[in-house]
Every structure is written in C-alpha cells, then in structure tokens.
Write a protein that binds this DNA or RNA. Structure first.
Length: 648
RNA sequence: GCUGGCGUAGCUCAACUGGUAGAGCAGCGGAUUUGUAAUCCGCAGGUUACGGGUUCGAGUCCCAUCGCCAGCUCCA
C-alpha cells in the first residue's frame, strides 16, 4: 500500500509523484510553505476536497486559497460549523441537526430550540462567532467507525445526530470534523483554521421541518453567509439590494401596473397600464401563432366533475382545484386547459391529413395554492398561460418538438434572456398510465433533444402526472434562473378521452398530445420580465411609449398636436399638461420609466417637431415628427430591446 | 398548511418604557409660464387591517380572524 504512487498534475503543467494517501495539505507544503498556510482546500479534477483527506488517485490538482472564488463554499461550510458552535456555547443543551448541502451562497444550521431565535439572539450569536473566528481554532478531520461516531454523539446528547448517522449508508466512510469543543458529523471540506473565515453575517431565521418533511417536527433554522473578504460580503448584499430594487411587487405598485386585494387573495388586478402590457404579451404570442400554425380557441371555466374524473385531475390534482356544487352536480374550475381541448378534439371526426392540430388557449386558470406559498405574480391562484395542445401522430413528435424549440428560442431572444438551459423531467411518484408508455415517451423526448443537439440535464421524477416533460430555464439580467417554457408529452389523456383520427389506411388511430407553453404562466412571466428589465420596458411593451412635455403652457396646443400625430400612427402617447417646470416634467417622466420624452417649446413649435429625450440616454436633439414616428414605429414593430434606434 | 416577523393617510415612514396620531411625496385650490431629473403658498386626507379583551386610558399589552413578508413544504 505504502509503495503505491499517484501522479498529480499541477496548474503550471508539471506532474509530480506522491505516495497514495498524501493529503492536499502535504502536497501544498511541497509546493510552498506560504501556500500551505493560506490553503483552504484542495481540488482534484474539479472536485473540491478537504485539505486533510488523503488523495488516492492521480489527477489534475490545485490548492485553493481564499483568493479563489471556489473557496467560498468551503468558507461558508466552515462558518456553518462556527455558527453551530456559537449556538452551543450560548445556549447549552441545544440539539443541533445539520447544515446546508449547497453552499453556493449561504450557510444554515437547524436547531431544536424551545422558541424562535430573535434578532437579539442573532446579534449575540454573531458576536460569539466572531470570537471563535478570532481564536483561529484549527479544524480537525477524523475518520471514525460507526460505533465511535455513535459514542461521540451519545456522549454529547446529540440525539438528532444519531438519526443522521443511521441514515449514512453502510460501507460509507464516516468522518467527523472538530474545531475547539465542537464536533459534528460531516463530510467536509473545511478550512484549516476558523480565522480563514474572512467576513460573515447572519441573515435570517425561520422554521424548517426535520429532513424537509412537513410531518416531522419543526426545527429552528439560522441562515448566514460568509466570504473570504469583506468586499465580497458587501457585494453579496449589494446584489440582494439590487434584486429588491427590481422586485416586481415594488415596480408593479410604483408604475401602477397591478395590485392585490384581500378580497381575492393571490389573484392579481391588472390596472389599465398593466393590462396594456399584458395584452402586448398576448399579441406577441398571437403573432407567433400565425407563423407557427396554431388555432386559438375559447373554452369554458367551469366543468362538471365528470370531466375531471375522465382526465384524472379528480384523482391526481384535486387538492389544487376549486370545486362547487350546482344543480346537485359537482363542478370544478379548470386548473388546466388540456381536458377541454380533448373534449374539443372529440367534437369532429379527424383525418391524419389535419394533423398536427395545434390548439391554443389563453383561458383563465384557477388553482388552489396553500396560503403560505403564494407570492406576488409569480405564484397566484388565478392566471392564464400561453397554453397550447398539439394533437399529432406519433411519427410527428420529432418535427413538432423541433419547431417548438425554434419558437422558444425566438421568444426568449426577443426579451434578451440568455440561451435557455434545458431539463428533461421523468416519471414522478404520483404518475398515471402504463409504465411502458412512460418509458417510451421519455425515450422519444430524449431522442428529440439528441437530434436537436442541445445540451440538457435529466431531472428524475420531476415530470407531470400524465407525462414526461422538457423544461426551459433562462437567466435574467442579474443572473437569476427562471423556469419558463415547457413541453410535455402525453399519451394518457388521448387514451382516457378515447381520441381518434382516421389514419392513411382508413383505420382508427390514437393521436398523441403535446402540452406546451412558452411564457408559461403569463402572470409569472410578467413578473420575471418586469424584474429582468427593472421596469424599463422596451418600447413595444411600454404602456406609455412617449410623453410630450410642453416647455410652458403656451405650447400646450403644439404638444397636443404632437400627441395626436403619434396616436394617429398607432403609438401610445400622452401630454404632461401640468404647469410645472420642464425639469420637473422630465424627472417625473424618467421616474415613470417612459421610454421617449418629447419636448416642445418655441423652436420645436415653429419647426413642427420635438426635441427627443430617450430614457436613460438623455437629449438626442430636435427631430421632425416624421423622423420620430418612423423611428418609434420601426422599433415597436421590430420589438427591439432598445427604445430608439442605436445609430441615431 | 407550518415557523417567525409585519400591518399607522394613495405611497414612503414618524409617534420614549400605554397618556389621546405627525412629516415628506402624491391629490386638490391658487400663484408662477418655466428649455433637459423636484417652483412657491395654501387646503384636505387616518374608527391606526378587522373583531374581541385588559386598563382610568391602547397605534403601543393579550386573544382570535384576514392579509402581507422571509423561510419550510409545494409549484407555472
């Protein structure tokens, strides 16, 4: 064993031999004492490993120091242990559970504590953590047997840890990490000493179910974050602040787009301006429906429970539906459009020549969402989707999915979202239908993805109850992920509704159904888009595209004439008729995020034009009305992101 | 639904340990006639979310309800 050697390739390209089982720390020492001292973790072939964990195989190796962004997760993970240590010091007898899996941004620890932690508690805990950090306690890593681990935690009366220990699969290596008095069951990796945690801050507390299961006891959770430096910590909070500034609930109120009332919880009221934006989104999708061959329909809201029994929603989705009783019949508000489209498909006899039949519906949907989960426009009880169902022959699935990819990319590109990341979600636990059908459906979607040649990730068990799906996730202007479009393959509903078309051979065939939405929920998309643009909507979406600002009341008539001209050209414009100073009107226009401000004074009134001021870009000088109308019309028609052509 | 926090004028926020609600902006009226991010003066605006309770007295303390926020769980 001791004779075995491994080869590590260092970042400078050099390869060195080490005895198998050498630790990253030992390797770091051979490179340089200062590096070893600064080290927070090792990295082998891209995987972060603890400095004290023996390396058993050859690979690309490097030492991570606080300067490497990758070191953050190790620092946060270590700060997590310091948090638990501080809580144990301040509140002896507190039973600790476990930390966080994902340390990309935050750390957390769950505690069994008789009450919620208060802000004062957090302050004290932070101070205690600062003390522990300053003490520069070394982290020690120990490999222990199951019995030894059990003894440690039994001795410490950490009963939850014993449950966690029992969850570790037989045969896995069990490690504990200790710094000072504090010991925890942990895989690591951790920094060398607590003082390598450069800057940290506790963020918030909340309740959290043990093992994330609501049938279990609720523990008290503390969240925090940590970075190598104060600057990084500050940048993190600046990012949070930026997200707050963009919060669609804030913008919706400020820009008078929508509101909520306790009389209709979680159901938005779109104000005139908001409704205008909303309808522009629908108009955009309708224009694509022409291009991609869809037919739009309008279907009922309320259906006899029989429909939901046939579709399976009555058995798989009932807890999310609103029901009421009429004429001694149970009726349910639709949470999805698919069953009514199946009814619609069944109205006529269909020939294979008509397929694929693409049926679109902006029908209002109602879903009961538990009171604790609703949030702004992103999670509501009343909404609509840019929904469509494609009835086609099995042989047409490939071309339909391919065409959907084109549509998705076209839509997301229009808003300037990143190239979507694609996920394939497979059979969930609560699934309907023949497992063999599921398998072949999943295989078909996978085949489409491969043929298209796009990278994707499999999300096992995340499919809809009636079929597997492909999801599209985009990143917004500040890098946050949003799941938008979805394509779901469904053999079940056509079967349950006994849908059929007459095939080439004259025999009855069963169509397959594709459920798809590009924006997803229009309400949710509205929120995502608003935050993405920080309220600065592109011209085609702006409720008020231009505002005419007379320099003084003397030019009111000239200003009204400019507005009339724009309105006649199909643009949305208004006049600021208040007898305010120009500066005030400009300020209000900018704050109101109006894309184009048109200033009319003596010079412009005489020349018959206006001085153009573009949002966030300032004064572009005087233009004729023809130029202004032409520029704005073009930008609107093109659905350009920029409110005014760049070259001007 | 669960844990914790919050709810004062249209908006943003004040009101020490319980002592009888106040400011800015917005609105309205008037003056001003303005050239690229806030003109001045005045007026009006609140059963302090809602319903109980404790108290001589409740925005403030207690209970219940509704809603909102951060999480948990769930999800478009």
């Amino acid at each position: 064993m001791s004779a075995e050697k491994i080869t590590l390739t260092l970042p400078d390209g050099s390869a060195r031999e080490f005895p198998a089982g050498a630790t990253p720390l030992e390797v770091a020492r051979t490179i340089g004492e200062r590096l070893a001292k600064a080290a927070v973790a090792g990295e082998i072939d891209g995987a972060i490993v603890d400095l004290r964990a023996p390396i058993r195989r050859s690979g690309k190796f490097r030492v991570l120091t606080p300067r490497d962004p990758e070191a953050g997760v190790v620092i946060r993970h270590s700060a997590e242990h310091v948090l638990a240590d501080a809580v144990e010091r301040l509140f002896p007898g507190t039973i600790i559970d476990a930390g966080r899996q994902d340390h990309a941004e935050k750390f957390q620890y769950d505690f069994r504590f008789p009450r919620g932690f208060t802000p004062e508690d957090l302050e004290k805990i932070e101070q205690e953590m600062a003390r522990i950090v300053k003490e520069a306690r070394p982290f020690e890593r120990k490999v222990v047997t199951r019995t030894q681990a059990a003894a440690i935690f039994k001795n410490r009366k950490e009963e939850i840890k014993l449950v966690r220990l029992a969850d570790i699969p037989e045969g896995d290596e069990i490690t504990v990490f200790q710094h000072g008095e504090f010991v925890d069951l942990c895989r690591g990796p951790h920094v060398q000493r607590t003082d390598q945690i450069g800057a940290f801050k506790l963020i918030d507390t909340s309740g959290a179910y043990f093992k994330g299961d609501e049938r279990n006891e609720m523990l008290q959770r503390i969240y925090g974050t940590a970075f190598a430096t104060r600057d990084e910590l500050d940048a993190y909070f600046a990012k949070i602040e930026e997200a707050r500034r963009r919060d669609h609930r804030r913008l919706g109120k400020d820009l008078d787009l929508f509101s909520f009332s306790p009389l209709a919880p979680a159901s938005p009221f779109f104000h005139p301006k908001g409704a205008l934006v909303y309808n522009q989104l629908l108009a955009f999708m309708r224009s694509l429906y022409v291009k991609y061959g869809y037919q739009e329909v309008i279907t009922p809201q309320l259906f006899d429970a029989e429909l939901w029994k046939t579709s399976g929603h009555y058995f798989h989705y009932k807890e999310n539906m609103f029901f009421s009783e009429v004429d001694e019949h149970e009726f349910g508000l639709k949470p999805m459009n698919c069953p009514s489209h199946c009814v619609l498909f069944g109205v006529h006899a269909h020939s294979y020549r008509e397929l694929p039949l693409r049926i679109a519906d902006f029908g209002r949907l109602h879903r009961y969402e538990r009171s604790g989960v609703v949030q702004g426009l992103t999670r509501v009880r009343s909404f609509c989707q840019d929904d469509a169902h494609i009835f086609c022959m099995p042989s047409q699935i490939g071309q339909e999915v391919s065409s959907l990819f084109d549509m998705m990319f076209e839509v997301y590109g229009t808003f300037g979202f990143s190239e979507p990341v694609i996920y394939l979600s497979t059979k969930p636990e609560k699934a309907m239908g023949d497992p063999a059908l599921w398998e072949s459906s999943e295989a078909q979607l996978e085949k489409c993805l491969k043929e298209r040649g796009v990278p994707y990730t499999v999300n096992a068990g995340d499919g809809a109850f009636y079929g597997p799906k492909i999801d599209f996730v985009v990143h917004d202007a500040i890098g946050r992920e949003w799941q938008l479009g979805t394509i779901q393959l469904d053999w079940n509903l056509p079967e349950r509704f006994k849908l059929a078309y007459v095939g080439e051979d004259g025999g009855e065939q069963r169509p397959v159904m594709l459920h798809r939405a590009v924006l997803g929920s229009v309400e949710r998309f509205f929120a995502v888009m608003l935050e993405h643009f920080a309220g600065d909507l592109p011209l085609w979406l702006a409720p008020e595209q231009a505002r005419v600002l007379p320099v003084s009341d003397k030019f009111l008539d000239a200003a009204r004439a400019v507005k009339s001209r724009l309105v006649a050209a199909g643009l949305r414009a208004d006049v600021d008729e208040r007898s305010e100073k120009l500066g005030a009107k400009i300020r209000d226009g900018e704050l109101g995020k109006v894309p184009v401000l048109l200033i009319v004074g003596a010079r412009e009134a005489e020349a018959g034009g206006a001085s153009v001021r573009v949002r966030h870009r300032g004064d572009l000088g005087s233009k004729t009305l023809d130029e202004i109308v032409a520029a704005m019309t073009t930008t609107t028609k093109q659905r350009a992101l920029n409110p005014w052509p760049e070259a001007q």
